[in-house]
Design a protein around this nucleic acid. Structure first.
Lengths: 136, 136
DNA sequence: CTGTGTGCAAACACTTTGCAGGTGT
DNA sequence: ACACCTGCAAAGTGTTTGCACACAG
């Protein structure tokens, strides 16, 4: 359950306490997390700023990806094995439960969407809000 | 090109300068707008707070709907005729151009997505980022 | 040892709330 | 006349930046 040092090494990042802790937190909770969730959720205290910077670093290096949210606050989720440094595959569905508030990455692919002439699709984000299987 | 008073009346809102101006701005620009776009884009000056409250009012009454964005700042777009006070139909695709930054509502429906057992879908938001027909 | 990460302080940006006065119907 | 809108001020929240020190490699 604690593969964070290896993972950090794999992504060419130094192994520091805050990074290990935050990465472990992502590994433990397997749903999308906002900055605030992380700051509150980790036992040992880290500076707000450190959390922000660590998230940004992870984002740059491709360990995590953004998850859209309709409340303005960005969330982040761990990339799966499908994501490498070279290419990202986040074309899966994110589901936000309106009861418990958790946002999960569903293992459902986003269907092909045909766009009007002239449009080139790049990154796709699909957020479905509803009631999850736990709360249903 | 100036149907805002009627529209306001239709949604049981008082016709005030700020509301008319903001609604007209939405009518003129037919893409998704963030709060900042509105504040900068309108000739006559309105207080930040007024813009926030007007947007919230429009949102409550169903004139506009939220559009997700990956930069943390929420955007809003006019509801189409399909949206009434009783029911909303925002299950269309939003397209954000990475070149010009504009977010448009495409007239493309979000395909049916089959969710894992126990999940009930409510609101759906689909944001595609790429290059639009103007910038391509 | 060297370059990078961390914490602290402060600045900055975004959004909400309270209140007094003005405006639409 | 009355309820609701608006502007101002201020507070609350989220995020970024600068700098000195500490730490990983």
């Amino acid at each position: 359950m604690n593969g964070s040092p290896q993972l950090l090494k794999e992504f060419k990042l130094r192994s520091t306490p805050s990074r290990k802790a935050i990465l472990n937190f992502f590994l433990k909770k397997n749903y999308a997390l906002a900055h605030a969730d992380i700051e509150k959720g980790i036992a040992s205290h880290f500076d707000r700023v450190t959390v922000y910077r660590t998230l940004k670093t992870f984002l740059d290096k491709g360990l995590i990806h953004k998850v859209l949210d309709d409340e303005g606050a960005l969330k982040y989720a761990l990339c799966t094995e499908a994501c490498t440094i070279t290419g990202h595959h986040h074309d899966h569905v994110h589901f936000k439960c309106v009861r418990c508030g958790q946002t999960n990455c569903l293992n459902v692919e986003v269907p092909q969407i045909k766009l009007p002439k002239g449009y080139q699709a790049g990154e796709i984000n699909l957020l479905i809000q509803g009631v999850c299987s736990n709360c249903g």
